[in-house]
């Protein structure tokens, strides 16, 4: 009897939490396609708010995508060799470097943005270009890429595999291409999806680093929450969900897969 009572309590808590998390999402989706939210759903469904969002904010969506893809490329170019180097040379120095690049995970984005502004804010050309925001995003997403790859590489005997390839005549570059990269693939994939998802959703750093001419999707969202009618804000949020939810699911799937492999 006691057991079923605890179960009912647990189920209630779980369902309440789910409702708390999910109902607002439903509300926002509904509000985004309702003709007049104040009157309620009876006012009919429409896509006009979504089109309105497109007119107003298409630029921000494209900028976010461009940033996400550039950020992915940068984290791959810098992160993959770095993760490989860290995996091949374990030691306190590598641990320290890994810890150091992980700082942006722990230090609030606001503080990092302030730091970047303090040092580079006076370099006008750089400050006003989208690459300034890109630096922030790369900084923030880099640890996810490096750690994701590192976790997979640490689980295989990379040194012996490479020696095996070397005895078969493979040069260092061929070993990297044929052995290291394919075996790190699950980690690269999980890292890549994480980087893109986080970059598209990043607000804290971006809000401080952006200029009026360079609005990313979340910055645009904040802007619409402050100045647009609820239906437009909701429709914009809906667009964001459509973009981010599949990415999030792919990311969770890839991360779970990478974790399975590294165990």
């Amino acid at each position: 009897m006691i057991k079923s009572k605890t179960k009912i309590l647990q189920l209630t808590v779980t369902l309440t939490a789910c409702a708390f998390l999910f109902v607002p999402i439903i509300l926002s989706v509904l509000a985004g396609v309702t003709a007049n939210y104040f009157q309620g759903i009876s006012s009919g469904f429409t896509l006009k708010w979504v089109f309105r969002v497109w007119e107003l904010y298409a630029d921000s969506i494209f900028l976010s995508m461009r940033l996400a893809i550039s950020c992915l490329i940068m984290t791959l170019i810098i992160g993959l060799p770095a993760a490989y180097g860290l995996a091949r040379n374990p030691g306190w120095l590598s641990r320290l470097l890994e810890e150091f690049i992980s700082l942006p995970l722990a230090v609030p984005g606001l503080a990092l943005a302030l730091a970047l502004l303090q040092l580079y804010g006076s370099m006008k050309g750089f400050r006003a270009s989208w690459t300034f925001i890109l630096v922030g995003h790369v900084l923030y997403t880099m640890p996810f890429m490096v750690r994701s790859i590192l976790a997979v590489l640490a689980s295989i005997d990379l040194k012996t595999l490479e020696e095996g390839a070397a005895t078969l005549g493979a040069s260092p570059w061929q070993r990297f291409r044929d052995i290291v990269v394919p075996n790190a693939m699950p980690g690269i994939l999980a890292g890549a999806l994480t980087v893109v998802t986080l970059s598209i959703g990043e607000f804290n750093l971006t809000w401080m680093l952006h200029t009026p001419y360079l609005k990313t999707l979340p910055v645009g969202l904040a802007d619409s929450y402050a100045s647009m009618r609820l239906e437009v804000a909701s429709a914009y949020t809906l667009v964001f969900f459509v973009l981010i939810v599949p990415l999030l699911m792919a990311m969770q799937w890839a991360s779970a897969r990478a974790q399975r492999i590294s165990q």
Binding site: T160, G164, D178, N183
Partner: peptide, 27 residues
């Protein structure tokens, strides 16, 4: 090592997990 043309069988075999048996042998 890659230019000595030696064949080596490792204690742990060091078979490449990303390749099939055939691809391993053909590498």
């Amino acid at each position: 090592v890659e230019r000595r043309n030696v064949g080596m069988v490792f204690q742990s075999y060091a078979l490449f997990p990303n390749m099939s048996v055939r691809a391993n042998i053909g590498y």
